[in-house]
Each structure stands twice: as C-alpha cells, then as structure tokens.
Design a protein around this nucleic acid. Sequence first.
DNA 1: TACACGTGGCG
DNA 2: TCGCCAAGTGT
Length: 331
Amino acid sequence: MLQQTQVPTALPYYERFIKQFPTPAALARASDHAVLKAWEGLGYYRRAGNLHAAAKAVIRDHGGRVPDDPKVFAQLPGVGRYTCGAVQSIAFGHARAALDGNAVRVLARWFAVGRPITEAATRRRLWQLADSLVPASAPGDWNQAIMELGSRLCTPRSPRCPLCPARRLCAAAKRGIQDRIPVKRRRKPIPHIEVGAGIIWRRGKVLMCKRPAGKMLAGLWEFPGGKQRKGETIRECIRRELKEECDLAVTVGKHLIDVTHTYSHLKVTLRCYHCRAPRGRAKLHASAEARWLRIDDIPTLPLPAADLKILQALGIERETAVRATRNPRGR
DNA sequence: TACACGTGGCG
DNA sequence: TCGCCAAGTGT
C-alpha cells in the first residue's frame, strides 16, 4: 500500500484491509472482487493483485509464513528492491537498505549528488550509499528514520535544515545547495482526452462493464463508453462505443455531468449522458463482463475514482427528484 | 531503458 | 489551475 502512496493516505485502507484479511491465509482465499473492492480508491490497482498473488504463494510455497530470507521474499510478486529491504529490515532485522523517494532525496543531499536521480548510474550509486549506511543493529529503525527525515524535514521544497539532526553531515547544506538537489528532469506533459460515457437504462437498471485485464484499471467496473474521435460529437461517440463494445443500440438522452479526472499519465474528461437501450443482449467485445444493476447495487462493485464521482452525481440527482416529489414546490 | 500505472495533497 | 510528489514495480 505504501508503494508511491503517502502514509496518511494508506493508513485507513490498511486498517480496514487487515481487519478483513487478518492473515495470509484469509487473503489467499478471498475473491479477486473482494480484494479489489477493499483497494478501491487507493490507486495502482495492480498492487492489490500482486499482494493477493503473494498471499497465495506464501500459503502454497512457504507454509503460510512470510519468508524471512530476503532472497526468497524478493521473489514474491510486487516485491521489488525497496519493499524487500523495508520488510526484511523492519520485520526481521536484516541489514538491508530501503531506498524510497524520501531516502533518495536525503542521500542525494547528504552526499551532494549532482547527477540527475533518474539516471541508472545515479540510482546505483544511491543504492550503494544506502547499503553502506545501514547498521547491523536495528536496521529497520535506521531505514524508517531516513525515510521519516525525508518526509518531515528534508522535504522536496523548503527543507528545514536548521532542525535537521544530520545538518553537520550534509554536503548539500554545507554548500547551501540543498534547494538544487536532487537534480531531476522535467516530466513530459500528459495528454488530455475526451471520453463519452453512458448511464444506460433498462427497466430501472443500469449497465456496468468490467475493465479488461492488462489495461488501466483492470478488473474495476465502469459506466461504459470510450474515447471521442475527431469530427465526432459526444453523442455519436457514445452510440458508437456502445455498439462496438457491447453491441447495444442506445438512444442518448439527457446530460448528467462532466467529470475531469487526472491519472498518472493521462487526463480525461468524462462526458456523461443518460441513455436508453430498450432491447438487445449486451454482448462483450473489449469489455470482459457486463451487468445490469440497480443503482443501489453499484456500490458493491469496485469502481475507479472517476466513476465514483458519476455515481455520486446519480445519487444526488435522485435525491433531488425524491425531494421534489415529496414537496412539489421545492424549497 | 523508458514507460505505464491512481489518487490526493500541496505550494 | 498546474506541476510536483508520494515508504515503486513490472514490462
């Protein structure tokens, strides 16, 4: 959960997750659906699949015990060099480095690393430094201290050097160049696309589609639709996408909401419309699975954040309708 | 090696 | 509003 995710964000997910799946065995026997639902909103959903697969491997290959051998532990899915070092040092006291984004920044400043931290040679050097620093005694405390230092004091912007216990060791602080380290390259801007999405109604139910394995948001459920093409209106886009993906002929009706959502590498504006699909079976092409659901049942599915916003708009819309019925003059 | 992969907080 | 960043990994 902590891979590329700040502690305060992961914490409530962790608390719920560990209650629901207290042991590797409990997680191993859970359904993909249940695990993904528990992960809903955390992002990087492949981590959930990796963790699930790792729990199964622990049961199948390691007698239900998390391996305390770094070489063995590192073979589990989702366990890279950082996670291996963090778990092995913190949980088992093995003297392994844990170089996360915080530690990279701390060490880069400490040793005034002037090369871009994106370069492979620089990463190697930082890992060497990290390895050389980990003490045999309480290596987990050391790793956590370095990460915490990066998180609390040695921050990306405006590091609080006067408060830093390591200020007299820090080469960057000595030279006053802490604001220019670590050196990084500018990221390339992310593209922005327009997507048409349909709230497809039939007999009081709405069509939801499961995102195919291997693609972004794999295994999560969404309101069906797709990318708008050049020279195409958004209504045409929704009709075309529903025909292509579900073989449904839909009538596009009232606009519901526009939702703009920024992903890690993509910005999307979802233009959402109520639609009708009076007949025809929803056949599946790109979508792995589809279901007709009452609005109240949609929250049982794991949904991406953008679709949660749509669901909220639907709920608010219905609230408004109910209130108007109870009180025809409104408020 | 470079890129895909989510979401939320911050300046 | 925007870019950056977060207890990175897999391909």
